[in-house]
Each structure stands twice: as structure tokens, then as C-alpha cells.
Amino acid sequence: MKVTLKVWRQKDRNSPGELKSYQSPELSPNMSFLEMLDVVNEHLANQGEDPIAFDHDCREGICGTCSLVIDGKPHGPHKGIATCQTYMRSFKDGDEIVVEPFRAKPFPLIKDLVVDRKAFDRIQHAGGFISVRTGAAPDANAIPVPKENADLAMDAAQCIGCGACVAACKNASAMLFVSAKVSHLGLMPQGQPERYRRVKAMVNQMDAEGFGSCTVTGSCEAVCPKEISIDFIARMNRDYLVAILKGDPKAVRGGGAG
């Protein structure tokens, strides 16, 4: 089979970009979408052209590095998988496929189809953790965790941090990502002490990064390669509301220890 690619080419953040057409060499339907891009890139390189820059790493749907908006949908036509798990058999011979980068102001473009998703990391730095030093942990079975909670926490924790939710949302909102993090830790008993502090810090950082807000369209959930539910957004909204109503903690008066 062969396809025509219309790929977003942009040298760097400050240069203008445009969609360019490429005719693929002969392809196998068993190729993954990224393998198809590899083949096209080899072809381009052999012709002395600059290969198409795209992000990828594990190629098994778990690292969250691959991105791409394929024919208007982040991670391609199928549900519950990432671009790297999309196979060419999902397309027909002669198809024209439009490939674009994830678009959002907090995801500045690096080159062609590669964007910078460090905004997600900064949200995590703000509070996406349980403060426990190495070595300070009690026995793992000292705190039982109801199976339902652990399972639900796992549903949220599966998030691979790819940013498809942002790419799909008409508001470029990162609520699904942030809520998955907040819910995962907020559902575990170990995460309770910092629950409200965490949600406040992470949501505020999310706002500071310039993501849009949630208008409950559900696009994020539909494209999420891990099918994370927007129920977690409701959970985060609730936690944040409680956090805001609780107000900032009372200042602790200083004092030396002897």
C-alpha cells in the first residue's frame, strides 16, 4: 500500500510552518505508524532532504513520548492506544493522512511534529508526590488500602503523560492529566496528609502554565491512550473546592529547639 502524507514542517519555533505533501514508498499494512514514518524518513534522507522530526521512544504505548495529531485526532483513529500502537492496516491504500503536532500554548513547538511538554513536569514538581524520604517508610502492609481504592488509583495512575488530552481539548485544557495525578495520590491513604495542599499547588501551576479550562466536552477521555475517565476531573474539582474553602494553613510561629 501507499499513502500520501500531509505533514506539518516547521524548522523551529520562530520560523513559519506549513503542511507539506509526501508520497510514501510502498508500505506494509503490518507496519506501525511510526515505522511508516521511519521508512519515509529513510527515503527523505537518501534523497538528501531533512527527515521529518517526530517524538518517539518505547514504541509500546507506555512511555508517553510519541504524540502526533493524525487526521485531526491525537494518537490516530483508534481508541485506547498511542500513535506508536497504531498500525497502517487502519488506513487504506491511497489515503491522504494529515499529520500535525500537538497544539497548545504551553506546549511550544520544537521542530516539525515535536513539541515541548515540560509544562507537565512543572505541574508535577509543584506537588505531584507524597513527601516521604527514602528509608522512612513503614512496612508496606502496615497501612491496608481498600482494593477498590487501589484499583481506582491505578486507573488514574496509568496516565502516561503524553498530552493527548491537551491536544484534543478545544480549550487545550490539562485537567485530565492533572486530575489523574491528583486522584491517584488522593485515593491512597498514604496521600491523605498532603491531599489538599497538593491539589491546590498542582492546579495553580496548571493555570500558571496557560492551559485552558474544562468545559466537559469529554474529548480528552475519548483520545486518552489509557482511557482515563473524566470522573477524575470531578474528583479534583471537589478536592480543590475543599482546599480553597479550607484556606491557607495558619502560619506557624518559629522557635528554636533549645
Partner: peptide, 18 residues
């Protein structure tokens, strides 16, 4: 112990233990 304290959602039995 360390990972459980960090909130790693390990598989649990109904009793809540690992």
C-alpha cells in the same frame, strides 16, 4: 515499603493487603 509509602498502587487483596 518505600514504594508503598510513595503511593504506588500495587495490586491488593480485598483485605487491603498486598
Amino acid at each position: 515499603d518505600q514504594c508503598a509509602a510513595q503511593g504506588v498502587p500495587f495490586a491488593r487483596e480485598y483485605g487491603g493487603l498486598l
